[in-house]
Simulated assay, not measured.
Amino acid sequence: MVISGQAPVRAIRYSPSSDTARHGVEVMTLRSLRERMGPGEFTAPQCPRFHLIALVTEGHGTHAVDFRSGELHPGTVWWVRPGQVQQWGNVYDYEATIVLLEDGVLGPIARSSLTGSPMRWRCCWHLDENQSGSNLVAPLIAHLSTVFDQSGPGAAPLLRHLANTLLITLLDIAPPDPGPAPTIGSSTVDTFAQAVEDGFTRTRSVSDYARELGYSEKTVTRAVRAATGLTAKQFIDERVILECKRLLSHTERTTGSIADDLGFSDVSNFTKFFAARTGMSPTEFRRSARPPRW
């Protein structure tokens, strides 16, 4: 794992530490990661360019992903996806098994299941022993670790198969994001969420997305509200606000530059948009941002 980029947030690209890891899968303990990288690795926010999944095995701690902080204890899973920003807590307070997955490892089933908005991704949860599938996670990670430790370069197909099985299992058992459960229009919402992810820097108009997807604006709004409790416009605005917060917190870019990149006509409109949805100006948020609780 090699660090590149500049503080205050560092982009981390996948760089294998062994011939086996060159297949896009690497398994390690948090202890070994601490020993290899040193305490300075964990002080600043990071933006991995790969999937990072951890299963806590002992101790207690915290881990924050995109301004949401989760409590860690044995049986907790946390999952950072490419492009998200993570902030480690005290990594000496707990132990975990960590799986790194390059995005190219994902098969078609896992990849199709990972579409949508990062606002709706569950990043940290505790495994429920009474939930079907939860008892598979620890054995899957243990098997993946054994294959990684004991196999040579020819282990790629098995490693990738196990990695995809782990991802699909986690997606199947992850609790829903807080809010109303989906009832109707889930495929419509998935398609809409992906369109927003691809286009939120271009447009914040519900009608633009509805036209692009071939739906009526009313159909999109009804489906999104049923699935998320938000209007379609609120859903779009939440995604824009998340990106605003990322850029304000983790870069030194001016508000004018951020406003331009996110498609605002001028700084004044950007400031009004941000303040109306967060209760503070971009400058105030940059000065005082703290990760809220899960």
Rank of each mutant, 00 (worst) to 15 (best):
D177A: 04
D190S: 14
P291N: 08
G40V: 13
M119N: 15
A193H: 04
D128F: 01
R286L: 08
V2K: 13
T165P: 04
I236L: 03
S186K: 11
T29E: 06
Q46M: 07
G214I: 15
S265I: 10
G199N: 07
V77Y: 14
A275D: 10
A7R: 10
T283E: 12
D172E: 08
V80N: 00
F200S: 12
R222E: 06
A64Q: 07
S265T: 05
F148A: 00
V91N: 02
I168F: 04
P157F: 06
C244N: 13
S4G: 15
P74G: 13
A232R: 10
D190Q: 14
I3T: 15
A223L: 03
L170K: 02
E26Q: 06
H60D: 04
R225F: 05
W79N: 12
F274G: 14
N130Q: 09
Q86S: 01
W79C: 14
Y92L: 06
C47L: 09
E252W: 10
K245G: 12
L262V: 04
I12L: 09
G5V: 07
T221S: 15
V85Y: 03
P16Y: 06
R277H: 09
A259M: 08
P157H: 04
S32N: 09
R222V: 09
S132P: 10
R287F: 08
T201D: 06
N90R: 02
I168S: 05
A223T: 05
V99C: 01
D190I: 13
V80C: 02
Q46L: 03
L55R: 10
A232W: 07
G83M: 02
A110L: 10
L159A: 10
T278G: 08
H60Q: 03
E252G: 06
A223H: 03
S207P: 15
T57V: 07
F273T: 02
T115M: 08
T20W: 02
V189P: 05
K272Q: 11
A276T: 01
T221H: 13
T29R: 02
T278K: 12
P157C: 08
I141L: 06
A163Y: 14
V206Y: 07
S134G: 04
W294P: 13
D19K: 05
S205H: 14
V85S: 06
C124V: 10
V80G: 00
R22F: 02
A195D: 03
I173P: 01
I241V: 11
L114Q: 07
V196F: 01
I241K: 06
F67H: 15
R68T: 15
R68V: 13
H63V: 12
Q150R: 11
G279E: 09
Y215S: 11
F67S: 15
A276L: 00
R277L: 06
L170V: 04
I141A: 09
N130F: 00
T97V: 12
R160D: 07
D93T: 02
L136C: 13
K218G: 09
A210I: 08
T57E: 00
Y94G: 05
F273W: 06
E238I: 07
F285D: 14
A110F: 14
G214E: 15
V224A: 05
F285I: 12
E212P: 14
G89L: 00
V240R: 11
S69C: 12
E217G: 10
E284G: 13
